[in-house]
Design a protein around this nucleic acid. Structure first.
Lengths: 163, 163
DNA sequence: TCCGTCGGGTTGATGTGTCAACCCGACCCG
DNA sequence: CGGGTCGGGTTGACACATCAACCCGACGGA
């Protein structure tokens, strides 16, 4: 609370280890996804969400909620993915178009998912082991709660003072 | 080894919690750095490294090793930072220029570092607490080792076959 | 009815990261 | 001397993320 802002040596060391691990892992996973299947992490995320909805189609704002992306990022990325044939924007009769995964998109994710899962297992899950992994899961949830509670919705949407 | 590649429910849950935590934390930290001080995470990283070297000057490839960035990313980013007056490329008599932090760059990092450290403490260090944090540090190091051992230097540098 | 504003979505400009190609001096081997 | 090739560094093209601005239909007063 009233502590100094600075981190002591142990804290600093753990924090930096974490940062390095993070970067190393992300880089590694993304590289392989890209090199072996031509998919970026972002592509993968979208395709996972679409393929997990049994209809294979979602509204853009659902995807936005699911991925936590900003709407403009999503819009741009969906356009690119449509150009590449991974998804389709279907202007159904309702007001807004639905985003549907294509055959090609489905094939892509079905092909790369096992390899991706295997890497996550090898380099993350198995190194943690069940006990430490469970702890990490808990702490992660706590951190997310802490942050979202802190700036409940006053960080993102430009809060200048009240009223 | 011979296990299924897939993650079971607990593993999946922990992994996704971790991913979410990660994104939330990164976004939060970076947003504040950007909004309050006009620095990106990348700017910050460079300035931290430069300011921690007592001479305030480093060769580009030292920075590259310290940050783990690809050289072209570094080159691009240093150019942009120079344009903004945060650093200077000094063509000394030696073969390659040295990267020096400017007064302005020094002022910027001195100003934002305490706030940044305070956030890391509040949302990460203090939520973990000393014990869990120590564990995380250990696991992180193990993961980095595992990955770097796995593709010792055969992932990055395009190894087609041996010799 | 008119106006404000809100939610879902697109667009364009700009900043950032990645990849591949290149430059150049140093070094090695022939 | 002539040619590899290696390390440090730059460049250009392209993919991607972010921000602010905008479009438009729906809703809610007054």
């Amino acid at each position: 609370m009233s502590k100094e802002p600075w981190l002591d040596d142990d804290e600093q060391k753990a924090w930096r280890s974490y940062l390095l691990m993070n970067r190393t892992l992300e880089t590694h996973l993304e590289r392989h996804l890209q090199r072996e299947f031509g998919l970026s992490k972002s592509d993968f995320e979208i395709l996972v969400n679409l393929s997990e909805s049994q209809s294979g189609r979602m509204r853009a704002f659902e995807l936005s909620r699911a991925t936590q992306w900003e709407k403009s990022r999503l819009s741009h990325h969906l356009s690119r993915m449509e150009k590449r044939g991974l998804i389709r924007k279907e202007s159904c009769e309702a007001r807004y178009p639905e985003i549907a995964i294509t055959e090609e998109g489905m094939a892509a994710i079905k092909e790369c998912a096992p390899a991706h899962a295997a890497r996550v297992r090898e380099f993350f899950v198995d190194v943690f082991g069940p006990d430490r992994l469970a702890v990490l899961g808990e702490v992660s949830d706590e951190i997310v709660e802490t942050i979202t509670a802190h700036c409940d919705n006053d960080c993102p949407p430009e809060v200048s003072g009240q009223s």
